[in-house]
Simulated assay, not measured.
Amino acid sequence: MIEKIGKITLYVKDQKEAKDFWLDKLGFELKFEQPMGPNLSWIEVGPSDDNTTLVLYSKSAMEQQDPSVVAHPSVIFSTTDLEAAYEKMKANGVKVEEMQKMPYGSMFIFFDQDGNNYLLREDA
């Protein structure tokens, strides 16, 4: 059966900008990169200690292939130190919303270079 999340595709306006955002501002590592044509690459990034990757795929290329699949992904990231992650993102110029402390856990929403939002929650 399914044992883990392997890859999550994010459809981005500019692959270089997206790659820079995830590597430089969030500290992810480049896991794989391969050209797919003159102006298109397959780019995978992810946290250093995780095998799950984000595929940064060209939104315009996918819209030409199959416009129906270019929907915003729902991605929830996890951390064991939410406060430190929040402060680091703010220091790196990442747009973040206020921290939410709920009975079931703490979390906050952050935005990438294209305005897509993601949730970061704290794992116990």
Rank of each mutant, 00 (worst) to 15 (best):
50 D>W: 04
79 T>W: 07
54 L>T: 03
59 K>A: 12
67 P>D: 00
50 D>L: 06
81 D>A: 14
51 N>W: 03
74 S>F: 11
68 S>V: 04
14 D>I: 04
7 K>V: 15
10 L>V: 13
68 S>D: 13
95 K>T: 10
92 N>T: 02
38 P>Q: 15
65 Q>P: 00
12 V>H: 05
43 I>W: 00
23 L>S: 02
64 Q>D: 13
15 Q>N: 06
11 Y>K: 03
88 K>S: 09
30 L>H: 08
93 G>C: 10
35 P>L: 06
58 S>M: 07
19 K>P: 01
85 A>I: 08
31 K>G: 01
60 S>A: 12
11 Y>L: 06
73 P>A: 12
38 P>Y: 10
21 F>R: 09
7 K>R: 14
36 M>N: 12
22 W>L: 02
33 E>V: 11
58 S>W: 01
22 W>V: 03
38 P>E: 15
11 Y>M: 09
68 S>L: 11
31 K>N: 07
27 G>L: 07
22 W>G: 02
11 Y>Q: 09
39 N>T: 12
63 E>K: 14
62 M>R: 07
58 S>V: 00
27 G>A: 08
69 V>I: 14
89 M>N: 03
95 K>D: 13
41 S>E: 12
87 E>C: 02
44 E>D: 09
87 E>D: 11
23 L>P: 02
10 L>Y: 04
44 E>F: 00
7 K>I: 14
41 S>T: 10
76 I>F: 10
